[in-house]
Simulated assay, not measured.
Amino acid sequence: MRTTPLTAVPLLVAALAAPAHAATVPAAQPPRVPAGTTAAWVVFDRQSGKFVAARNAHRKFRSASVVKILIAIDYLERRTSVPAADAKLLRIMLRSSDDDAASAFWDRLGKGQIIVRTARKLGLADTTPPPASKPGFWGYTSLSAYDIVRTYRYLLDRATPRVRDTILGHLRAATPCGTDGFDQTFGIPDAVPRPWAVKQGWSGFGTTPPVRCGGDVRAAAAPISWITQRAAESGVPDYGRPVLHTSGLVGKGERYVMALLTAHPAGASWNTSVKRTTTLTRSLYRHITG
């Protein structure tokens, strides 16, 4: 399949600036972003080899768990075999977004150097490690919707079959519940018909979900207060605001590569943020499919 080169940022801009009657521009209206929410998205059509939707394509967000894809790429490409214990860690990190598994790889592989290496190899111009003051916080990696789409395209078009099949195989089998008890079916899983392969990200909602995935009611989770207090000095995008990200391969034959990143008002609840993100995702999918 012939596709647009990964480096074709000008082509992205040109395609999105095309007249409304152009064949590459969907007829449906793009999503409306609610007041107080910051959103960015990029969608690449693998069938046409073109970008078909974008908003704030290069705006940086803190990665939350989406960075786990980069951690997995770095780990797998630096070895020829995977011990059983590490295979289990990869499985729960990618399918159930397990934080302890991510931290184990993060510490072992050099923390922020993982991001330096993968950004250089994949050509991720918007992706940078966490600030020096917070080297252990892999979720404070900065990235953009464009770079996430670029990462999926790397897996599809350039990675070895072993790396591609391992990572995408796990993302195709993403579990409804994260190991932290949060429901990770927001965004693509709730808004887009199967098949899909997804990696979700969430941060800033505390450590206890308002309703544990599976129906176990818990105390409402509020965003962590010290995040807001130290927002100005952190150097982390949207520090002080909860974020929800949904990304993956969607459509028949995994035709589209989609990334939608959102930052919500400080203090926004999990349920409200999830509804906003899922509504945006549904509208974006309708926009690209007509």
Score class of each variant (00 low, 15 high):
1 M>K: 07
2 R>W: 08
3 T>V: 14
5 P>N: 03
6 L>A: 14
9 V>I: 13
9 V>N: 09
9 V>P: 00
10 P>W: 04
11 L>P: 00
20 A>G: 10
22 A>F: 07
24 T>A: 09
28 A>P: 02
28 A>E: 11
36 G>V: 05
38 T>A: 13
38 T>H: 04
38 T>K: 02
42 V>K: 08
43 V>Y: 06
44 F>K: 05
46 R>I: 03
56 N>V: 09
58 H>V: 08
59 R>D: 02
60 K>G: 06
62 R>V: 12
65 S>A: 06
68 K>E: 11
68 K>V: 03
82 V>H: 04
83 P>K: 02
84 A>D: 15
85 A>L: 09
91 R>S: 15
92 I>R: 04
94 L>W: 09
100 D>W: 06
100 D>P: 00
102 A>I: 05
102 A>V: 01
102 A>E: 02
103 S>K: 04
103 S>T: 10
105 F>N: 03
109 L>R: 01
111 K>C: 06
113 Q>C: 01
113 Q>P: 00
115 I>G: 04
116 V>G: 03
118 T>F: 03
118 T>K: 01
120 R>I: 03
121 K>M: 11
121 K>I: 03
122 L>P: 06
124 L>W: 08
128 T>H: 12
134 K>D: 14
134 K>S: 12
136 G>T: 06
137 F>Q: 14
140 Y>W: 14
141 T>P: 02
143 L>M: 15
146 Y>H: 06
147 D>P: 14
149 V>S: 11
159 A>E: 07
162 R>T: 13
170 H>K: 01
172 R>M: 07
174 A>K: 01
175 T>I: 00
176 P>N: 07
176 P>F: 01
177 C>G: 10
177 C>H: 09
182 F>C: 05
182 F>A: 10
185 T>E: 14
186 F>A: 00
186 F>H: 01
188 I>V: 15
190 D>C: 00
192 V>I: 11
192 V>G: 08
192 V>C: 05
196 W>M: 00
196 W>Q: 03
197 A>L: 04
198 V>T: 14
198 V>I: 15
198 V>H: 00
204 G>Y: 02
204 G>H: 09
207 T>F: 07
207 T>L: 13
209 P>S: 13
210 P>Q: 01
213 C>F: 06
214 G>L: 11
215 G>E: 07
216 D>P: 02
216 D>H: 12
217 V>K: 15
219 A>P: 07
220 A>C: 10
221 A>F: 03
222 A>C: 09
223 P>Q: 14
223 P>Y: 09
224 I>C: 11
230 R>L: 10
237 P>S: 12
237 P>L: 01
237 P>N: 00
238 D>S: 08
239 Y>L: 11
239 Y>W: 11
240 G>R: 05
240 G>D: 02
244 L>W: 07
249 L>I: 12
251 G>T: 10
254 E>L: 13
256 Y>F: 14
256 Y>E: 10
257 V>C: 12
258 M>P: 01
258 M>W: 01
267 G>L: 13
268 A>M: 10
270 W>M: 13
270 W>C: 10
272 T>Y: 12
273 S>H: 13
274 V>K: 06
275 K>A: 15
275 K>V: 14
278 T>P: 12
281 T>N: 15
282 R>C: 00
284 L>R: 07
285 Y>V: 10
288 I>C: 08
